[in-house]
Amino acid sequence: MADIVIERVIDDVSMLKALADPIRMTLLDLTMGQPDRTWTARELAAQVGVLPTNVYYHLNMLERHELLQVRDTRVVNGIIEKHYGAGQYSVTFHRRAGDGGDETRELVLQAIDKVRDDIHDGLKMESMTMSPDAPDSERMMVSTGLVHIPEDQIAGFRAELIQMVTRYERASRNACRFTVMVAIYPS
């Protein structure tokens, strides 16, 4: 088994295209959410709601770009069954606005839509709340703020955000899991 990369930097158009699909993004989220687990195509297909025969194309594309790893194979009824796992703990996108064009926009919008859907579902199922009286493990926070950063400190601000997220990504896999979406963009 290849080592899992701590942070995969997505910085080329071909990899953006590989991720510019909601099924592939969901597959990536599932495997990165449980990086030590392995999944069969059948298990992943059931999680994303597609037929196993339809998920192979997506798995192969993610595997080609090393976003998924084949960690084990077994022969089941004469057929080789692959067991997939995440190729990284986190993914960071580094593209200039004009690079990747539609793929970059689509990827960003998919990420925002997924967070919105997760929050909607969590509030609907009452598995999360914004109440300050709720236990920390159930409490969500959504905040938007405008900050003023001197130009010579912008890179440092970004680096501190990434460092903080990375510190908690590496924390115990038995800890409470939270999705974190950090956005910093010029206003």
Rank of each mutant, 00 (worst) to 15 (best):
A20W: 01
P22K: 07
A183Q: 13
Q153G: 08
A134L: 04
V108C: 03
R71I: 06
Y56E: 09
A18I: 05
Q47W: 05
G101E: 06
D36Q: 15
Q110V: 09
S90P: 11
I6H: 11
A171E: 14
D21A: 08
D11Q: 09
T53G: 04
E81N: 08
L67H: 04
R24C: 04
M25R: 14
A155N: 10
H58E: 10
A155W: 07
F93A: 03
M125Y: 08
D99V: 11
D113K: 13
D36H: 15
V70C: 07
M128S: 08
A134R: 00
L27M: 11
N77D: 13
D113P: 02
F178R: 03
E43P: 00
S14Q: 14
V91G: 02
D117M: 15
Q88D: 09
T38E: 15
Y185E: 08
V50P: 00
V108K: 02
V147S: 02
H120A: 10
P135Q: 01
Q153E: 14
G98M: 10
G87W: 00
V55T: 15
E7T: 12
L16Y: 12
R173E: 05
R74T: 03
N60Y: 11
P135Y: 04
Y84P: 01
K124C: 05
M25N: 09
Q34F: 13
D117N: 15
E138C: 08
Q88T: 12
N60Q: 13
I10D: 01
R177T: 07
G33W: 01
R95D: 08
D121Y: 12
A86E: 00
I4N: 07
S137M: 11
L44P: 00
L16E: 11
I119S: 12
